[in-house]
Design a protein around this nucleic acid. Structure first.
Length: 295
DNA sequence: TATACGTGGAT
DNA sequence: TATCCAAGTAT
């Protein structure tokens, strides 16, 4: 049909580069299976590989199947999540495991729509699991791939803050027609963004497509659009939540209110943060002002 | 569409 | 020290 799609000039150099430079990550090994891929994708949301590695290994050892995780209390998932950040991901992974055990016979679904219906699985993760675990043909648009396309195809330094329809069109247009090649392309473009085409200080001298990169050919113009919003953290509810949850993660027994009060001086914000954790299902209030991770 | 949601390493 | 940034999702 469209010869461009089968033989786009970027495909071969990027995939050849990946053949030689792909990191040996545990979730890329065949023995990881679809569950291993799914666990890694949850952990890697907004979190660097180096911090995921140790937790991933412990997690898969303790819960080698969705059914194993579903059989334990959600609070144990929150505890094992440790300091990875965004602990609601642990809760959602536990909920996804429960759904898989109950609705999918304990097997991670192969169908994209069924993946998308799982808690904590959004546009990116559904495509990633379908592509990496099952070799399917999907546009896998994470922050790395978006940056690679922004530069190599669109010719700008950074992608927009939120994924746009235009980016999805580019990703689909660039997707190799062959299923296995498309899956390889997805992993290769992501790795290129992670290792070479980084947000700051891209190593264009080592880039396999530097000679074809629209951004470089335009003279590497600096980002001009709206500032890319940075998240403040100090003094926010998120920081307070983090401190409260850290206390509960370390405790093996229910914790009294006083122990939680000690982590933050301002009572209104402290109470709001604790209420939020309870509302999110990350903390379980007991009788007499005691708290613990959900049982 | 904008905002909330953790944590820690790099610059 | 202050920002930036990291394989996003839910609302």
């Amino acid at each position: 049909m469209n010869d461009d799609r089968d033989h786009h000039p970027l495909h071969t150099p990027v995939i050849d580069w990946f053949d030689d430079n792909a990191r040996d990550l545990p979730w890329r090994r065949p023995e990881a299976g679809a569950w291993g891929v799914m666990v890694s994708e949850f952990m890697l949301q907004q979190t660097p590989v180096s911090r995921v590695l140790p937790v991933y290994g412990q997690w898969l050892e303790r819960w080698p199947t969705p059914g194993a995780l579903a059989a334990d209390p959600s609070g144990e998932a929150v505890r094992a999540w440790g300091r990875l950040g965004y602990p609601r991901r642990a809760l959602r992974l536990h909920a996804a495991a429960t759904a898989i055990a109950q609705l999918h016979n304990g097997e991670v679904p192969t169908d994209h729509a069924e993946l998308l219906a799982l808690p904590g699985v959004g546009e990116y993760t559904a495509a990633a699991v379908a592509s990496f675990a099952y070799g399917q043909r999907h546009a896998v648009l994470d922050t790395n791939v978006r940056r690679v396309f922004a530069r190599a195809v669109t010719g700008v330094e950074y992608p927009p803050n939120a994924t746009t329809a235009a980016e999805r069109r580019v990703a689909h247009r660039m997707l190799p027609a062959d299923e296995a090649t498309a899956a390889r392309w997805a992993a290769a473009t992501m790795e290129l963004g992670a290792l070479i085409c980084t947000a700051r200080g891209p190593e264009c001298v080592r880039c396999p497509i530097a000679g074809q990169c629209a951004w470089r050919l335009a003279g590497s113009p600096e980002h001009d659009g709206p500032p890319r919003r940075g998240q403040t953290y100090a003094g926010t509810d998120r920081q307070v939540r983090g401190r409260l949850l850290a206390v509960l993660r370390e405790a093996t027994e229910p914790v009294p209110q006083a122990a939680l009060d000690a982590v933050w001086h301002e009572p209104v914000q402290r109470a709001r943060a604790l209420d939020g954790l309870v509302a999110d299902g990350l903390v379980e209030p007991l009788q007499d002002g005691m708290y613990r991770l959900p049982g």
